[in-house]
Design a protein around this nucleic acid. Structure first.
Length: 426
RNA sequence: CGGGGUAUAGCGCAGUCUGGUAGCGCACUCGCUUUGGGAGCGAGUGGUCGUAAGUUCGAAUCUUACUACCCCGACCA
């Protein structure tokens, strides 16, 4: 991709509407633009990152044996009345009418739609367990959207729903999803904690939250300083007790003492049990030939929120520092004098082709600007590796490598292999 | 929904108190010189001053109402 052709409106100053660092950087780096409160357009650079996260989630879901579907965003009132949620849910459920005056809502979640599909199309325990997922836009008319993508009203989410014949099978699927989420977060390269959680409005038996640790996190979690243990502090506090009193207390799991950390909730896994299956009469025949109500689980991971969380955890004063796994481009070729010096232009283009053929995603900064402008933009948008072709190339046939982490080296342009080793070893 | 704040060019801001017909920096366009840390000179483009009504000879500025957006709280994945 040529930088000069990219719709990449970077900003020197953050718009005053942005408060938290991920919001500021997403606006400044030209990833997103606001359309209305809590509603955003993803521009090309942002979409590249979003798609990378989405693909990691999809691959790990497929590996886990789950099957992808795509459900409608617009859902009829009748389905929501079956679970009584049409009445129970407040204004966060955005209700609309069609031209025939029929009631619909924009889906904030999809238990009703998927359960309807399964009860109509699955008749035997032999077809279970099933774990069905989608990656789709959700709409929740939040009381107060904030922090940009982190807490938008419209957001991209992977939601999956498992259908099991009994509690043991549900437990198995639950643990598979737990492992799958760990793999997703590890592949992206984020530091996280899993904490026991209040299962909240969705209801059900038990649930755990996946938190990406970051200073600006909305949630406060208590972790043990010497074990894997983590818990949402809401579950530890007695009435009127202050969070600060927890710090230093013995950890409830008996290992070490409590530390208080801020986290961004990016995933939540629930065992729903028979909650929705009962109200929607979803059952299959068991091995005895009797109707048996299904056990369900639901498992959500915020794809768009993960993008914001990755920035909250990985940035510096210059801009974003993407984990390689989700960087919008692997390499940026900073070509100084591209428009004037034919040798530099040719060397840059040749290198661009060569690296592209090796399956790296490469950006070539062919703009008429100087080194300062180009490196600043590259640092802002967080490209892991820059290759500078300029004066040193004309003089000594050498290029400079600048990692986003600060590492640099100078090499003859012919040593592509060295360049890539440098890249891979970071 | 309660409390606080903001709204002037794509972004950041000044001008509002004390009314006189809109300005600065960056960005953008053209030319020339530059090109290894956000370049220089010159010439330009771009704004119904959030919306509506009112006061006034005259409103970005004063009055009233409304809207949008942001922050804190409550709520929530």
């Amino acid at each position: 991709m040529l930088f000069s052709k990219l719709l990449l409106p970077t900003l020197k100053d953050a718009p005053q509407e942005a408060e938290v660092v991920s919001h500021k950087l997403m606006l400044r780096s030209g990833m997103i633009r606001k359309v209305a409160s809590g509603i955003y357009t993803w521009l090309p650079l942002g979409l590249k990152v979003l798609k990378k996260v989405e693909n990691i989630v999809r691959e790990e879901m497929d590996n886990s044996g789950a099957q992808e579907v795509f459900m409608p965003m617009v859902q009829p009132r009748e389905l929501w009345e079956e679970t009584k949620r049409w009445e129970k849910m407040g204004p966060e459920l955005l209700r609309i009418k069609d031209r025939h005056d029929r009631d619909f809502c924009l889906g904030p979640t999809h238990e009703e739609v998927i359960t309807d599909i399964i009860r109509d199309n699955v008749k035997s325990y032999r077809e279970l367990p099933l774990n069905i997922y989608q990656i789709q836009t959700k709409f929740r008319d939040e009381v107060r959207p904030r922090y940009g993508i982190m807490r938008g009203r419209e957001f991209l989410m992977k939601d999956s729903y498992s259908f099991n014949i009994d509690e043991e099978s549900l437990q198995e699927t639950y643990l598979i999803m737990r492992e799958t989420y760990k793999k997703v977060l590890e592949r992206i390269g984020l530091e996280y904690k899993i904490s026991a959680a209040d299962s909240g409005a969705i209801g059900g038996d038990s649930s755990e939250e996946f938190h990406v640790l970051a200073e600006n996190g909305e949630d406060t979690i208590a972790i043990s300083d010497s074990s894997e243990f983590a818990i949402n502090t809401e579950l530890l506090l007695k009435d009127g007790e202050d969070i600060s009193t927890l710090e230093g207390k013995p950890s409830p799991d008996g290992n070490g003492t409590i530390q208080i950390k801020k986290g961004i909730e990016v995933g939540h896994i629930f065992k729903l049990g028979k909650l929705y299956a009962e109200s929607m009469k979803a059952s299959v025949l068991n091995s005895d030939g009797n109707a048996s109500t299904l056990f369900m689980g639901c498992y959500g991971i915020g794809v768009s929120r993960l993008v914001a969380a990755a920035i909250e955890q990985n940035h510096d004063e210059k801009g974003i520092v993407w984990p390689h796994s989700i960087a919008p481009f692997d390499i940026n070729i900073i070509s100084i004098g591209y428009d004037k010096n034919k040798d530099i232009a040719k060397a840059s283009t040749d290198l661009y082709k060569e690296l592209s053929e090796m399956n790296y995603s490469v950006l070539l900064d062919d703009r008429k600007d100087g080194y300062g402008v180009k490196i600043k933009d590259s640092e802002l948008i967080g490209i892991p590796l820059n290759i500078v072709i300029g004066k040193k190339f004309t003089e000594d046939n050498e290029v400079e490598l600048i990692g986003r982490n600060g590492e640099t080296s100078t090499n003859p342009i012919t040593e592509i292999k060295t360049i890539l080793d440098f890249f891979k070893n970071k």
